[in-house]
Computed example of a mutant assay.
Amino acid sequence: MTNQKNTGERQQKIIVFLLFIVLILASIIVGTFNKINLIEKQPVTKAPDIEPIEAVAPVSTGKIAIIIDDFGYRNDAVSEGFLNMDADLTYSVIPGHEYSQTMSKKAFQLGYEVIVHIPMGTTAPKYGEDEYIIKASMTSAEIESRMDKVLQHLPEAVGMNNHQGSKASASKRVMNVMGTVLKENGKYFLDSRTTKETQAELIMRILGVPTGRRHVFLDNNADENSISQQLYILAEKAKTSGFAVGIGHVKENTLNVLQREIPKLKADNFEFVFVSEVVN
């Protein structure tokens, strides 16, 4: 009996011990589970959005628009040099010459702006220009016909400036007819201001044709030092007024100066732009 009693007591103790172990294990499991839930439920702190820093464009010192007149006379190293300039330049082509259409197409294809350098009443007619020239003595119908013809001859042109022709550009009637045709075709007119009596800019504004004026001639004096001085006068005008328009010609010295000085002016944050960007 005593042995059976002792055996029963040992069994009870073992059962109690096992239950104690089970309870401890259960507590550990429950505690671990709660910790896992707590970790999962903890709010995740979102990293603040960081806006990308954009590069700040340098402030423009001024816009310089340069027209190079007299394309069409030549097709050589000088004209090719202009067609390789690393700047937005506007090339003005005289109609009717041997290389007029060739230069117009090449300049356009290379991404430059092309305009018509319209001969207006020069007293020294040159071969090829006669059928395109605008004279103050012409009737309005004749002027309109010439304008249509020249725009068909140089379809790449987005505008026009005058070549000589002081008498014609001083005529309100002539400029009115020319301006009407330009407006119908969506072209602009830049007044080269070859005479102080010019009516071109005024009439274009009245008609609503985008227009502007030449501020500086770069190469009336063909000396490189003089051309450089004129270029920096143009730059100073652009700096004080926001923009300025200069006119040069397809000449070797003009090319040399522009190749040398344009990079320097760009380094000073001057912008070289097409004339279409500054007419209004």
Results as ranks from 00 to 15, higher is better:
residue 109 Q to I: 05
residue 111 G to C: 01
residue 89 L to N: 03
residue 77 A to M: 06
residue 90 T to C: 03
residue 112 Y to K: 10
residue 122 T to D: 11
residue 87 A to Q: 02
residue 118 I to W: 00
residue 120 M to L: 01
residue 121 G to Y: 04
residue 104 S to I: 01
residue 102 T to R: 12
residue 78 V to L: 05
residue 78 V to G: 08
residue 122 T to C: 10
residue 106 K to Q: 11
residue 102 T to I: 14
residue 114 V to D: 04
residue 70 D to M: 06
residue 82 F to H: 10
residue 95 P to A: 03
residue 76 D to I: 03
residue 113 E to K: 09
residue 104 S to G: 12
residue 82 F to W: 13
residue 93 V to R: 03
residue 85 M to P: 08
residue 93 V to N: 03
residue 122 T to W: 09
residue 90 T to F: 05
residue 110 L to G: 00
residue 87 A to W: 01
residue 96 G to V: 05
residue 113 E to T: 13
residue 104 S to E: 11
residue 107 A to V: 06
residue 87 A to V: 10
residue 104 S to T: 11
residue 79 S to E: 09
residue 120 M to E: 02
residue 102 T to K: 15
residue 100 S to A: 09
residue 102 T to H: 09
residue 78 V to C: 03
residue 115 I to T: 06
residue 88 D to K: 15
residue 93 V to L: 03
residue 94 I to K: 04
residue 90 T to A: 00
residue 91 Y to K: 04
residue 94 I to D: 02
residue 83 L to V: 12
residue 102 T to L: 13
residue 88 D to P: 10
residue 119 P to K: 04
residue 84 N to H: 14
residue 72 G to M: 12
residue 105 K to V: 10
residue 121 G to V: 03
residue 101 Q to H: 06
residue 79 S to D: 04
residue 123 T to I: 14
residue 70 D to A: 03
residue 97 H to Q: 15
residue 102 T to V: 14
residue 110 L to P: 07
residue 87 A to M: 13
residue 117 H to D: 02
residue 119 P to F: 00
residue 99 Y to Q: 06
residue 113 E to D: 13
residue 88 D to Q: 15
residue 123 T to G: 10
residue 95 P to I: 01
residue 80 E to N: 14
residue 98 E to W: 11
residue 110 L to V: 06
residue 72 G to Y: 11
residue 82 F to Q: 12
residue 101 Q to S: 07
residue 91 Y to A: 01
residue 95 P to F: 02
residue 89 L to G: 04
residue 100 S to E: 14
residue 108 F to M: 09
residue 113 E to L: 11
residue 111 G to I: 02
residue 100 S to C: 14
residue 118 I to C: 08
residue 110 L to D: 10
residue 101 Q to F: 06
residue 85 M to E: 14
residue 111 G to F: 06
residue 122 T to L: 10
residue 70 D to I: 02
residue 96 G to D: 04
residue 86 D to Y: 07
residue 116 V to L: 15
residue 74 R to N: 10
residue 92 S to P: 05
residue 96 G to N: 03
residue 105 K to C: 02
residue 120 M to N: 00
residue 80 E to C: 07
residue 77 A to Q: 15
residue 93 V to C: 04
residue 78 V to R: 08
residue 76 D to E: 07
residue 86 D to S: 13
residue 75 N to E: 05
residue 75 N to Q: 05
residue 83 L to W: 11
residue 98 E to L: 15
residue 93 V to P: 06
residue 102 T to S: 15
